[in-house]
Amino acid sequence: MITLTDFLIVSAALFCIGLYMIISKRNAIQILIGIELILNAAILNLVAFGKHDAVNNSGQIFALFAIVLAAATTAVALAIILNVYRKYKTIDPDKINNLKDQ
């Protein structure tokens, strides 16, 4: 029997992995992956808690919305990363420290 706690543990693990990736990775795409992992942890939580909700499947629906939104943000982020790469010839966030127009 898989209980809610197990879901929460997996979710927490995902969150931590994501957080670690965001903090430690030197590559903007990997950071983006980390963000996605955190988002997925949150979605997993929504789905896990949705089982105990009074309204049926509301959690799953929210999760679907969230996934769509996540896809959208990811697309936007990727576009930004692409632009950043064009401008700075790097996607290491540490080295991108100059936002002003050149």
Partner: peptide, 13 residues
């Protein structure tokens, strides 16, 4: 204040 985004994040954490 090094302009490193990840560092900001880390310190916040």
């Amino acid at each position: 204040q090094g302009g490193k985004v990840q560092y900001y994040l880390f310190s916040m954490l």
